[in-house]
Design a protein around this nucleic acid. Structure first.
Lengths: 364, 364
DNA sequence: CTGAAAGCGCTTACAG
DNA sequence: CTGAAAGCGCTTACAG
């Protein structure tokens, strides 16, 4: 009998073959099995060039046979990084808890995929604005970096972002890209999107275009869309009429419905509605339908985000498409760069106007 | 000066106050600061009854002051559990990579919330059916349990489920609840949902109700919906006509569009369409619209899942609502029970018929 | 109620 | 190219 007997690590009965102790094999088992040191096993499995090809093959074969997998907790503890990113979705505190904004859901999907392709795990959590993100994900070492996603009052959490940056947290935010921001953010070109909608509606012969959405620095993404809209009007020699701008801070149907009612209550004529998001547009279209105002015959409507349901609306909604696949990849890639200490470029992603029936003013 | 000086753990320069070494405080720092042992710090912070209230308060205060957080990797390694659940979304291999099935997105949201409320983290990943789930999430100790979500050929991954069960993996699956399953699954009452749709359509005076969706044990959820539909017909003294059942394995618009075209090609008269999912129904409605067949005037249509966009369709789609909030909570609670070694009851969740205009046969 | 000690399973200098 | 050793930061018997 030539089978060598190696000492077993404490805790495993020496009469039980390692191959049968399911999910329990350690690098020591592999080492004993192949007759090398545990350090060499670790090196081989991590692809270190310090191990000879022949040794590596033997070790890999043994690892496969024992169904061995590196214990992530141990390797993370030792190497001090987790191979995990955390995605924090912060929502309006008032949001209905059963539904997530479809746009963020779409982002979530693309971020998940991007992480998987790069070999990172993704931890997901919903957060209130009041929460201490850093403490829970960075200090506990659960994640190497944070992706922040969500609407909400920008000025209200500016301090928190500043704090994250001060503590050297690796985090990146989806949102408005502005000068003098404390953090690194990636967003789409809200300005050009707003401008494109305005130019498109003007081309449909609309002249009194209402804007539904907050137009203040509290909601910088909406504000950028608004500024693009104003710029578009100016190019056509028109001035934006303040009476045609109605606040809608939340991106919800309810907010859109109410915003349109406010607009109607002002008794200011309008022939088009540019909603700062598709959800707001959906609410506005419902309010118009309830008053028997026909879209697009009497009023043209356009939104922003191009969420999946927009093409199914009646009439289908003209909107601005944000490329969520590219957005997710860009967020992940830049966060990874940040983690590696490489320079990161704040980026503005291009948008695309998607014309559908809701904006064909006057046609039926 | 009465400030005591404690020895510093190796690795930290003793001239640097612990409070300034950001994100680096350990339980030893707290111990030194409060004059107790590190074990006591660990106990106090974990709420052990072995620590006196006074000591606990002092320790907690020190921990707050130093911004101390337990290192999850260390505690996980030592205690051998991760406080993390993994959600594996397995999709049809053919699925368009940019969009996730809206129903699963909704489940994802509710599972994320349920985990957060119970103090668990959630790891998310997309998986192909061919993947070795167990190895990647259980053997690596990244997660204490698995939640499996997704459509796909049930028979094709039965072996894998068996394997998971054999290896003692803590996992739970959303899907059909059938006798003799190798794993524990939770699902909605697909049978009663299918029956409710059939009875509803019959009530609208439909007599030739087509079923769009796979009706085989490869797709047991669809099959249960089909069996419910057959049962509903039987209650009205009608037999299901095989010519009215068209396969659609994937839950996509494309599959629905094609299924309806196949149905039309059969030249069998029908006055209603029951699609096995809303996505299939959406495709079918488009195919009907392309042929200028009016819904619900000429053909009534109903779906299943009640995804968010269904109420916005033209006409709004009658469907069967699955309570995703309850589903998410049930999945998480049962998985946690499984992890704790408690008995788990396979559960069938109730569904609710949601009637909208698409099924008002004959009306305009 | 508290402390000293062992050890979870790795990675990574250090030495050869 | 390989091995012996230290140590990541905790939790948990064990002893008092």
């Amino acid at each position: 009998m030539t089978l060598l007997r190696w000492p077993r690590p404490a805790g495993r009965p020496s009469n039980e073959p390692a191959a049968l102790s399911k999910g329990k094999a350690t690098s020591f088992d592999i080492a004993h099995m192949t007759g090398v040191s545990q350090s060499t096993v670790s090196r081989a499995l991590r692809g270190s060039p310090l191990v000879s090809e022949e040794t590596r093959q033997r070790i890999k074969a043994a690892a496969d046979q024992l169904n061995y997998k590196v214990d992530k907790n141990a390797s993370n503890l030792r190497s001090q990084h987790s191979g995990t990113l955390a995605l924090l979705l912060f929502e309006d505190p008032t949001a209905d808890e059963s539904h997530i904004n479809p746009f963020f859901l779409s982002m979530l999907g693309s971020i998940t995929r991007a992480c998987a392709l790069r070999g990172y795990d993704l931890l997901i959590s919903f957060q209130q604005l009041s929460y201490n993100w850093h403490a829970d994900y960075a200090d506990t070492k659960k994640a190497d970096g944070l992706i922040l996603l969500g609407y909400g009052d920008y000025l209200a959490y500016l301090d928190k972002l500043q704090n994250l940056a001060d503590q050297g947290m690796r985090s990146i935010r989806w949102g408005a890209v502005l000068p003098d921001q404390p953090d690194i953010s990636i967003g789409c070109d809200n300005f050009q999107g707003g401008r494109a909608i305005a130019l498109h509606l003007l081309e449909q012969s609309c002249r009194r275009i209402a804007f539904l959405g907050d137009a203040s620095s509290h909601y910088p993404e909406f504000f950028e869309r608004y500024r693009g809209y104003v710029a578009g009007l100016q190019e056509a020699g028109l001035a934006a009429d303040p009476a045609l701008q109605v606040d809608a801070a939340e991106s919800t149907e309810q907010a859109g419905y109410q915003a349109l009612e406010s607009l109607l209550a002002r008794d200011t004529p309008f022939d088009a509605v540019f909603a700062a998001s598709d959800l707001i547009a959906i609410g506005a279209m419902r309010a118009l339908a309830d008053r028997c105002i026909k879209v697009p015959e009497q009023v043209a409507v356009a939104g922003f985000d191009d969420i999946p349901m927009s093409r199914f609306l009646n009439p289908p909604l003209t909107s601005v498409l944000q490329d969520t696949k590219l957005a997710g990849e860009t967020l992940v890639d830049n966060l990874l760069r940040l983690i590696r200490g490489e320079p990161v470029e704040t980026r503005l992603l291009p948008v695309k106007l998607v014309v559908r029936r809701s904006s064909q003013f006057g046609k039926s």
